[in-house]
Amino acid sequence: MLLRVEDLHKRYGKEEVLKGVSFSLEKGETKVIIGPSGTGKSTLLRCINRLTEPDRGRVWLEDVEITSPKVNINRIRAQIGFVFQDFNLFTHLTALDNVRLGLIRVKGMSKKEATARAMEELARVGLADKANAYPAELSGGQQQRVSIARALAMDPKLILFDEPTSALDPELIGEVLAVMEDLAKSGMTMLVVTHEMGFARTVADEIIFMEKGVIVEQGPPEQIFSSPKQPRTAEFLRRITDLYGGAR
C-alpha cells in the first residue's frame, strides 16, 4: 500500500470539515475524489502532506507515518507532488527555473543535472519551447502543465491534484487533462479532486464520493456512475450532469 489515510479529522472553528476520512491508495493507482463544494476535499488533500495540520487521524506513506510529530515533513513533502487549483508557479522565475528550483535546493542536484531533468519534464508536458517564459507570459493551461512538470521532476511517489482545471477557461481544460491522463497511464500514483466527470469516468481506477466531511461511497467508476448505491451519490451526479453536461 502506498498511501493509507486513517480516520482524518479537521475542524475550522465551529465547523468540522473532515469527520473521519479513511481510504488507501495502491502504487500506480489513480483515485478521483468527487463531491459538492465545501465538502472538505481540498482540506483532505492538504492534510495528507500536512500543508494543513489535521486535528486527528493518521496518514502513512508506505511504512512512514507522515502524521508522526517525529517525521521530517519537508523530506516527506518532497516525495509527494502537489498540483494547485491556481497553479502557484513562482512568479519571479521562468518555467525552467520553476521546475528545477526544487531539484537544486531540496534534492541537492547540480545545476546541470537539474536542468537536464527539468527539460525532460517540460518536454513531457509539451512545453520545452516555453522553458524561458515567465508564468505571466503563459496561458493558464500552460501554467498548469508547468506546475505538473514541477511536481513530476521531483520524482514523487504520488501526486495530489487539487481541482487542477477549475481555474481554467473551458478551452484550456483539455490540454491539462490530456497530460494527466498520460501520467495515469504511465503508472503514476494519483489522487485527484475534480469536477471533470469525463476524466473521472475514463481515467480513475476508483471514485471516492465525499459529502459533508465524510466518504459517502467509493467504487469503480462504472458502478458509481451507472448504479450508485447511495441516493446522495445519485443526487450529486444528477446535479453535476446538469451543470457540466455530463461525462464526456
Binding site: N49, L51, N74, R75, I76, R77, A78, Q79, I80, G81, F82, F84, D86, N88, L89, F90, T91, H92, L101, G102, R105, V106, S147, R150, M154
Partner: peptide, 26 residues
Amino acid sequence: PTGQTLAARALGFSRLQAIRYVLLPQ
C-alpha cells in the same frame, strides 16, 4: 500571495528556504 509559500512548502522547502528562494526575491 500565500499560494507562493504553499507551493514552496509542498515541494519540500523549509520555512527558511521558502523565504530565501521564493519570498525575498519577489
